[in-house]
């Protein structure tokens, strides 16, 4: 049943012109960032080659900046794709179909999250396939760190999807749901600015910031602390959405 709900979510998006317009805009921005970062890297490499034998590191000079750019794009666009996950069911009156069918609420939540995650993952990895293809065709990139970066993006998609689903369950308005997702994800991201200070607030920022737990993937490091943090976030957000949907029976 989870897979069926996921499939419906996936097909609904692939059949939605709006979703493709959002995807096209997203990929255009992604392409712009890729072109710019690539240009800066190649120019710096040429200049550096005049002075030093070693080439500019591909990981820190290109792959990590691309990873950071893609992460920011996800933060920007995911709320647009998640805002109608549950809010649309309320608005269009299809919620009774789900609530009166012999399916568990958690199956609905997991199915919707899975469908969205698959859609965005395909968008990011297929649409962004030009990046690894370019690196492989024109160079010899380190593949393991690239796989690590892909894992980081996948987890970030899962986190933002779960957060968006929770936000969508909190409000019947798509706009409010999007705003909730944006402000929460941006807040958790920007919490990282406090990490370099001293004191408990900085310590809390180091533990609670989404950026801090995601950025190491782009640098070729996978830390169990980060992985557990991200999965825990997904779990708690989905649990919250599940309980929220259950509570709709008590409104």
């Amino acid at each position: 049943m989870i897979w069926h709900i996921a499939r419906r979510e996936l097909l609904a998006r692939t059949r939605s012109p709006f979703a493709w317009v959002v995807a096209g805009t997203w990929l255009a921005l992604q392409g712009l960032m890729f072109t710019l970062i690539l240009g800066v890297y190649l120019r710096s490499s040429r200049e550096g080659a005049e002075w030093e034998e070693e080439a500019l590191p591909l990981l820190s000079g290109l792959i990590d900046p691309l990873y950071s750019a893609q992460s920011l794009l996800l933060l920007l666009f995911m709320p647009l794709l998640t805002m109608n996950l549950l809010a649309s069911e309320q608005r269009s009156g299809t919620l009774p179909l789900l609530l009166s069918s012999p399916i568990a609420t958690w199956e609905v939540i997991l199915g919707k999250w899975l469908g969205l995650t698959i859609f965005v993952s395909v968008l990011v990895f297929l649409g962004g396939a030009l990046t690894p293809i370019t690196l492989i065709v024109f160079g010899s990139p380190p593949l393991a760190p690239m796989a690590g970066a892909a894992l980081g993006l996948l987890l970030l998609i899962g986190v933002l999807g779960a957060l968006g689903l929770l936000a969508s369950s909190l409000s019947g308005s798509q706009l409010v749901a999007a705003v909730i997702t944006w402000t929460t994800s941006m807040g958790l991201w920007l919490l990282a600015v406090l990490e370099h200070g001293e004191g408990p607030l900085s310590s809390l920022a180091r533990h609670g910031s989404l950026l801090i737990h995601v950025r190491q993937f782009g640098r070729g490091l996978i830390d169990t602390g980060d992985v557990v943090w991200l999965f825990s976030f997904i779990g708690v957000a989905l649990l919250g959405a599940w309980q929220r949907l259950e509570s709709w029976r008590w409104r």
Partner: peptide
Amino acid sequence: PPIYDEMSVEDFVDHAARLRG
């Protein structure tokens, strides 16, 4: 009626059939 506007009639009824088991 709890129907998805973007689906065709047949697709929607099939979807409902799946949901209903």
